[in-house]
């Protein structure tokens, strides 16, 4: 969903109807007066609705929507690694290289991926399809080596598995 998001104007008009509904449903999960609690889920929602990344305007609008200082949103967005502050590819691949994965060959997996996509960590393929990231332990160590493709974990990786996996991505 990459509908046009409205980023200025009155609070009731920000983003779009669908996004507002999602935000409001999150806000309602916290006690009255604690809308700030919804910042993280809200940033996830906005990132999903905005080609996978958060622009300054988007964050400002969220601050407005939650009635909190803009810097508080910036602080959160820059603290957590799942938030992207620059445009990314259509698909995000996060490869774990932490100790359990390292022991099981994540380095090989990482270099295979880098070679295959022709990019390094933190980069996006020229066609804008993939962004490759190195990440810390994703909590799937018994399936090492592993990666996260968009919202799905893929474990016990081998170069062949990666070929099939990326081949299947539209």
């Amino acid at each position: 969903m990459t509908a046009n998001l409205q980023l200025t104007g009155h609070r009731d008009q920000l983003f779009n109807e669908t996004v507002r509904q999602k935000l409001d449903s999150w806000i309602s999960k916290y006690p009255p007066g604690q809308a700030q609690s919804a910042v993280i889920p809200a940033l996830h929602i906005l990132q999903d609705a905005h080609q996978g990344w958060l622009s300054e305007g988007l964050m400002r609008a969220l601050a407005e929507y939650l009635d909190i200082p803009a810097i508080s949103v910036f602080e959160v967005a820059t603290f957590y690694t799942m938030f992207e502050l620059n445009p990314v590819g259509q698909h995000k691949i996060s490869v774990c290289t932490n100790i359990s994965c390292q022991l099981c060959g994540s380095e090989e997996i990482a270099s295979y991926l880098q070679k295959k996509l022709g990019i390094g960590f933190g980069q996006t393929t020229a066609d804008g399809k993939f962004t490759l990231k190195e990440v810390e332990c994703l909590g799937a160590c018994v399936g090492a080596p592993m990666l996260l493709l968009d919202r799905d974990y893929h474990e016990h990786l081998t170069p062949e598995k990666i070929d099939t996996l990326l081949g299947g991505v539209k």
Binding site: Q34, S37, L43, H44, V76, F79, T81, M82
Partner: peptide
Amino acid sequence: AGAYICGEETALLESLEG
């Protein structure tokens, strides 16, 4: 949203407070 430190209980509370 991706921060190991949020496993620490008081960091988790801060994170939960947005």
